[in-house]
Write a protein that binds this DNA or RNA. Structure first.
Length: 467
RNA sequence: GGCAGGGUGGCUCAGUGGCUACGGCGGAGGACUGCAAAUCCUUUAUUCGCGAGUUCGAUUCUCGCCCCUGCCUCCA
């Protein structure tokens, strides 16, 4: 089966063919670590985590690199504001990022470089650009990239230099040869962190960081470069210009961009105040709900965030967990544990599920297949048929998507609950039912229900869950 | 203004040149149950923004129009 991916550079889906057989190099732009990550970041983490998982499942040896931008104006400002050292702030935010990503079920990339650990590579790349006449030292002392010296500038975004300049909102900086020229090396101001370079003390511009880190880990040419839609221009455009001009290689072959998380159909942003951090959301919803929510839409589509949408994702997930719960019940009563419960690696994915993911990572379609499987499984469980194959598929699909990874009881019985009290009430109700004292039984159920506890009677006994 | 991507049932979200337009949420009816819950079954868009064209046939291709979002400044 072959993987088709939408390549922003070509503006069409194309067959994915890695540079080196059996191996994939993937670089994804990470975050600037000056604050907690928001749900927009969560989308990038989850989207590329899924892509990472699918590439590995497809048999590729994947080098997945995601950076941390740990030197930047915002970081400097935030550290000053808080009166703490920059390291302290960035280390704290990186730790927070990891705990968020882990909670969302994202696997750690193979490499997570920090910009400050790659200064030499950045300086070297800038030096090459200066030597090749693609960059120059401006009157301000900053080193700038000369966009006019790179004829293919605009290949990714489809923008033309002249069109960009007419109606441009860029403030004209007189030290620039062209208003679009961007900073490669910024001269240090007093009290700012600085590194030495042939042009004096300073620090790198944002764009060169990613070019240096990606090429440093993956080579001059590699397979996939990803990031959020808004990074297409100017960030990725500039990365291409730098890397191609400096290395002469073709840089990344496939450019993948995920759509935005919107609030009320508008882009989430701090200026609009419609901004949620991952931890704010996961305080109110299980992290898996957020992950599920991200998978319900195709990765390139915009995704409207709301409590209603989250509630729907929660409901959808509950449905899947109901199936799992029944499987657990089956396992408890049957002599031999189904292999699918003990050995997920041995479980095969359905062909149409694979086809969905091979079609530009179509997770909504993949989920539809999962739900079909869930229904078939429920039915098989109802009718007492052989469900081994279906169960294996169910487990394999949920494992790949990174959802339904908890025990059903953990999922349904979480939160503030007095288990002993509930179990006691259930026993009392059972007794009442045996004596056909249904009004007493119903009173017990009502009392529990008022505490958000729902009872479910089945042939194997009564179970409960918390709403 | 330039560039990019959209408009599919009450909501959400897939998809295809032609068989009954995927799935989830919600609604209705039924089976099961002492009654529920959960589950299963049935049902819920003569129709895919509007108009025209291509075609034997278009929601799917082409053109025009209307509307929405993003990028063009830091941004996932």
């Amino acid at each position: 089966m072959s993987l088709m991916v939408y390549n922003t550079l070509k503006r069409e889906k194309e067959l994915f063919e890695p540079l080196h057989a059996g191996h994939v190099g993937m670089y994804v732009c990470g975050v600037t670590v000056y604050d907690y990550s928001h749900i927009g970041h969560a989308r990038v983490m989850i989207v590329f985590d899924l892509i990472y998982r699918w590439l590995m499942k497809s048999g590729y040896d994947v080098d997945y690199v995601r950076n941390f931008t740990d030197v930047d104006d915002k970081i400097i400002a935030r550290a000053a504001e808080r009166g703490v050292a920059i390291d302290l702030l960035t280390n704290e935010m990186i730790a927070a990022f990891h705990s968020d990503a882990d909670a969302l079920g994202c696997l750690r990339p193979t490499h997570e470089p920090r910009a400050t650990d790659h200064m030499d590579a950045m300086v070297a790349m800038i030096q090459t650009l200066v030597e090749k006449g693609k960059a120059y030292v401006a009157d301000s002392g900053d080193v700038l990239y000369a966009v006019r010296e790179f004829p293919r500038y605009g290949q990714l975004s489809g923008k033309k230099i002249d069109e960009l300049e007419s109606g441009s909102r860029v403030d004209v900086d007189t030290s620039k040869r062209d208003p679009l020229d961007f900073v490669l090396w910024k001269m240090a101001k007093a009290d700012e962190p600085a590194w030495s370079s042939p042009w004096g003390l300073g620090r790198p511009g944002w764009h060169i960081e990613c070019s240096a880190m990606s090429c440093g880990h993956l080579g001059k040419s590699f397979d996939i470069h990803g990031g959020g839609m808004d990074l297409k221009f100017p960030h990725h455009e500039n990365e291409i210009a730098q890397a191609q001009a400096a290395n002469g290689g073709d840089f990344a072959h496939y450019w993948l961009h995920n759509g935005f998380v919107n609030i009320n159909a508008e882009k989430m942003s701090k200026s609009l105040g419609n901004f949620f951090t991952i931890r704010e959301v996961t305080e109110r919803y299980e992290p898996e709900v957020l992950r599920m929510f991200m998978l319900t839409a195709h990765y390139r589509s915009p995704l409207d965030f709301s409590d209603t949408a989250l509630d729907e994702s929660k409901a959808a997930l509950d449905r899947l967990y109901e199936t799992l719960k029944r499987v657990h019940q089956l396992a408890e009563t049957s002599a031999a544990l189904p292999q699918a419960l003990t050995d997920i690696a041995a479980c095969a994915l359905p062909t149409d599920f694979c086809a969905a993911l091979n079609d530009d990572f179509n997770t909504p379609e993949a989920l539809a297949i999962l739900f079909d499987c869930s229904r078939a499984l429920n039915k098989g469980l109802n009718e007492g048929g052989d469900v081994e194959v279906l169960l294996g598929q169910f487990r394999a699909m949920t494992a790949l998507l990174g959802i339904v990874q908890q025990h059903a009881d953990t999922w349904f019985q979480r939160g503030d609950v007095d288990t002993q009290f509930i179990e006691g009430m259930i026993k009392e109700r059972l007794l009442a039912r045996e004596q056909r004292d249904f009004s007493r039984a119903d009173a017990i159920r009502k009392e529990l229900s008022e505490q958000g506890i729902v009872l479910e009677d089945s042939s194997t006994g009564t179970t409960w869950k918390k709403l």
